[in-house]
Amino acid sequence: MNWYAIRTIYRFEMARARRTLLQSIVSPVLSTSLYFVVFGGAIGSRITQIDGVSYGAFIVPGLIMLMLLTQSVSNASFAIFFPKFSGTIYELLSAPVSHFEIVLGYVGAAATKSIILGLLILGTASLFVPLTIAHPLWMVLFLALTAVTFSLLGFIIGIWADNFEKLQLVPLLVITPLTFLGGTFYAIDMLPPLWQTVTLANPVVYLVSGFRWSFFGSADVSVAASVAMILLFLTACLGIVAWIFRTGYRIRP
C-alpha cells in the first residue's frame, strides 16, 4: 500500500474544504438549520406528534440524511471531476498508486467531510429541538455507511461527467427529489395506501427509516431492510468503481 499517497490525497482534499470553509461547512449547516427553524419550530408546533416524537425532532434524521446524500455526492464528484477538467489528473494517473488507493483517498476525504457535517447539524439541531438517540452505535454506523456509499456514487458521477451540467444533474434531479419523497418530512404511513407501496421503490426511504430508527426506535421499514439496502448500494457502487478502473473509462484511454 502506498500510504503516503493515500494520506496526501486525503489531506489535500481536507485542506480544500478548509480553504472553502464557508461553502463546504457553514453553508450546508446554515441551510439545514433553516429547516429546523421553519418546519421544526414555526410550522412543527402546529403538527401533532408522530410515533410519540415531536415533529421538530422527527425531521432531524431525515434532514441529516438529505444533507449527507447531497454533500457526499457533490464533494466526491467535484474532487475527481475538477482534476479531470483542469488536466491535473495526469499526475494521479502517472503516480505509483493503485485504483483502490485513489478511491480510498478521495472517497475517504469526502465521507469524512460529510460525517463531520452530519455531526455538526446534529449538534445544531439539538439546540432547537429536544433530541434523544436510542441506538448511538447504529446511528454512527448508518451515518458512516451512507456517507461512504454516496461518496462512492459521487466519485462515479465525477468520472462520468464531462461537463459541469452533468455534474449537477444527478444531485439535483435524482437525489434531492428522492430524499424529499423518501420520508424526510413525513412517516410513510401518513401517505395514501397506494403511495405507501410506490414509495417502497425509493431506496432513500430505507436510509431515512433506518437512520430515524437509530434515534427514536421506530421505523417505516424493518431495520434489516435498511441495512441490506445500504449494503446493496455500497456493493453496486464498488462494482462500478472497479469496472471504471479496469476499463479506464473516461480517465485512461
Binding site: Y4, A5, R7, T8, A15, R19, G87, T88, E91, V97
Partner: peptide, 30 residues
C-alpha cells in the same frame, strides 16, 4: 519516472510549496 506535461495545468489556488510537496507524497515518498 517523472513527467512534465505539455499543457500548463495546475491547482490554481495551491502554493508552490504545497503543490510540489503533494507530488512527492503522491509518489509514495516520505
Amino acid at each position: 519516472i517523472g513527467l512534465v506535461p505539455q499543457e500548463l495545468t495546475s491547482e490554481a489556488f495551491e502554493t508552490v510549496w504545497n503543490t510540489v510537496s503533494f507530488s512527492r507524497g503522491l509518489f509514495g515518498k516520505p
